[in-house]
Each structure stands twice: as structure tokens, then as C-alpha cells.
Amino acid sequence: MTATDRPWTRIETYYAGAYWGVRREVPEDCGRRTARLLELLAPCDPFFAHWYRPTRSLKDERKFPLSSSDMSTLTEMFRRGVNREKGKPVIEELGFNVSFGNGGGDYDRSALGILCGCYSEVIPNSCVLSLPTLGRSPNAERVISAPVLTEAVRSMALAMDPDWAVAMSHAHRDMDDNDQPVPWVGWLTYFSKQRGTVPPLPAPVRIEPVEDKGTLIVLTPERFTVANPEHVALARRVRELLTRAGLITTR
């Protein structure tokens, strides 16, 4: 079965995620990182300029704006986001979980889910940005583009200091074997300089530095889709080259 035969490729949904290993941090540290992220995301696109505190009902979300300068609120969100089983002590090594959105509707919405301060060897820290749905959102066509996502992934790299980050479709992530090692290679992929040096890659791939933090790889200037076999082949070729260069380690 080819990618174009698969029913889940008809509507591709996209996201961006940053991931890093053991890093013990307190709520204030996580709050500062998140404040920096919101500050950097705002100029990427108007869709990322406004965020709201989490509420029990999405219809109430816009009542509680969240500012990058409101460190006390951000810190308190992480302090309340401890992990524990009901009635049992806090599981400190699992860090702090928070999630909040930009006030959009069902398909015209972005949300940030952040796990920070985790020092378990099993669960990675992460920052995941969901994106609006193509064909169902008036903003998706603009937001899900190489220029906007380049700046969004760059923002995540600078604010969260991850080991790696990616922007890709869920269909692309899921189409390969489940035992494929991470990092995933997506439409856009970021590697911290600690992982190694990105080798020369074939056209139309673009490689650019992210200040002194690491390197961003953009596979194609047009929107990556698994319905395009040339895109899929390019991603696999780039993964092979990155694996040879030691940036991706096989199990």
C-alpha cells in the first residue's frame, strides 16, 4: 500500500514539538522558559500572539489572558502541575505539566502542552504546539507554512533548549515503523549542537544555524505531505544521512 492509498493521508494534521532529556528544574525555571517561548512566538504570526490560562471549559478560556510578563501566573501554573496519583505524594521526578490554548475554536486552534523539570530516565521533557486544521481553519493555510514554522521551531529551540525538535504531520510521524528511533525527521527538524554536526544534505533541503544553540533543517519550502512520494523519499534519504553522521542513533 502506498502513502496515497492510505485513508488517513486525505487530511493531514500538523504539530511542532521539542524534546529533551533529564533536566531537574523548579517551577520558576519552567515559568521563565515558557515566558520566553511566548515572547518569541508572538512575532511569528498573529495566531501565536495571544494565549489564555487553562480553564475547565474552553468557552471560558478567553476570559483569562496569559502574558509572557506575568511570571507569577506562569510559575503558579507549573507549581500546580505536579504529577501524583490520587491521594498519594507528588512524584517529583516527573516534573510539572501545563497546557493552555490561544482561544481558538475546535479546528482553528493552537495549544501548548509542556512537561518541564522531569528528571526521570524514562519520560522525556517536551513542549508540543498543536496547529489548526487545514481546510477547516481560516488561519491554517498561512500558519502551516515553512516560513512560519521555521520561526516557531526556532522559538522553541531558543526558549526550551531541547535536544531536538520537529515540525511534521501526524501522518508522516505514524507512517514509518514504530521502532524507528528518535529524533524523527520531519518537514523541519532541529538538532542541538551537542548531538553533532549536520552533514551536507541534498537539494532542496535548507540548513541554517539557530544562534549558538544548534541547526535547523527544512526539507522543502513547500508544505510537506505524505501524499507526495518525493517528499517521503527525501525525508528517508535525509534520515539515512543524519544517521550516518551520528545525529540519530539506532537502537
Results as ranks from 00 to 15, higher is better:
1 M>K: 05
6 R>D: 13
15 Y>E: 06
17 G>L: 06
20 W>Q: 04
25 E>T: 03
37 L>P: 02
37 L>A: 05
38 L>E: 06
39 E>C: 03
42 A>Y: 08
43 P>N: 12
46 P>S: 12
47 F>A: 11
50 H>Q: 15
51 W>C: 03
51 W>R: 04
54 P>Y: 12
54 P>C: 12
57 S>Q: 12
57 S>D: 15
62 R>L: 13
63 K>M: 13
65 P>F: 12
66 L>Y: 09
67 S>P: 02
67 S>V: 01
71 M>D: 01
72 S>G: 01
74 L>F: 11
81 G>K: 04
81 G>I: 07
86 K>I: 09
88 K>C: 02
96 F>Y: 15
99 S>Y: 10
102 N>T: 07
102 N>K: 08
106 D>T: 11
110 S>M: 09
112 L>E: 03
114 I>H: 06
124 P>F: 07
126 S>E: 12
131 L>T: 08
132 P>E: 13
133 T>A: 08
139 N>M: 06
142 R>N: 13
142 R>H: 14
149 L>W: 04
151 E>P: 00
151 E>F: 02
156 M>W: 09
161 D>A: 08
163 D>G: 09
163 D>P: 00
164 W>K: 01
164 W>I: 01
164 W>T: 01
167 A>V: 04
167 A>N: 05
169 S>A: 08
180 Q>H: 09
182 V>E: 15
183 P>A: 07
184 W>H: 14
185 V>W: 01
185 V>N: 03
187 W>K: 05
188 L>A: 02
193 K>P: 00
193 K>D: 11
194 Q>H: 14
197 T>K: 14
202 P>A: 07
203 A>G: 09
206 R>N: 09
214 G>C: 10
217 I>D: 06
219 L>P: 05
220 T>P: 00
223 R>A: 02
241 L>M: 15
242 L>I: 06
246 G>R: 12
247 L>I: 10
247 L>C: 08
248 I>W: 08
250 T>L: 12
251 R>T: 12
